[in-house]
Amino acid sequence: MKSTYMQCVVPSVGPAVLRGQRGALRRKLAAWGLGRTACEDILLVTGELLANALDHGTPPVRVVFTQSRTMEGRLVHIEVADAGTGLNTGLVRATWRHPSFSLAEGGRGLLIVDTLAASWGDVPTDGGHTVWADVDCVGAGVPARQ
């Protein structure tokens, strides 16, 4: 089963806008029956992807959340799209493995995404690109069937 929560366009950035969207997502995740750990993981991954889109991308920024329930588990699929150029995920991951890599130089956001998400990537689109991540809610303490 799949259910899409939200498809929204982020017209501007600011603490009030982001706080409101974070609150709306938190309420929806709770309504989906996701526990605190899963909600926090999803909110953190979303925040990192959204921050990258707002800092490095080109408006408009679109965010989509989809929940999938299968026999194996439950996933929340997060997509953050903007009109900018994409990123080379292979190069990002290779940078983390390079001996000269330091967290002091930045790059922590996608490393957090890589740690919390079951998988993530970047897909080019006609109008820009979409960075996506799948958060495994079963791994965050949510039973597959609820």
Rank of each mutant, 00 (worst) to 15 (best):
A118N: 09
L91G: 08
R108D: 06
T37G: 01
G14R: 04
S119E: 15
L91D: 09
L18A: 02
M71W: 13
G141D: 12
T58D: 04
S119Q: 14
G141Q: 08
G106Q: 08
T95E: 06
V10H: 00
L25G: 01
D41P: 02
H56A: 14
G128T: 02
L44H: 08
R145P: 05
L25S: 01
A81N: 05
R97A: 15
K2Y: 12
R97P: 08
G23W: 03
M1P: 13
V64E: 10
V135R: 03
G107W: 00
A117G: 07
S119H: 13
A144F: 08
G90L: 07
A104E: 14
M71A: 15
W32N: 02
T125C: 00
M1S: 15
S102W: 10
T115L: 13
H98C: 03
A30S: 10
V131E: 05
T46V: 10
G73R: 06
A16E: 14
M6A: 12
G57D: 04
V45S: 09
L91T: 12
G90N: 09
F65K: 01
P60H: 03
G121T: 01
Q67M: 14
L29S: 07
L43S: 06
G14L: 02
W132R: 02
V135E: 02
Q7W: 10
S100L: 14
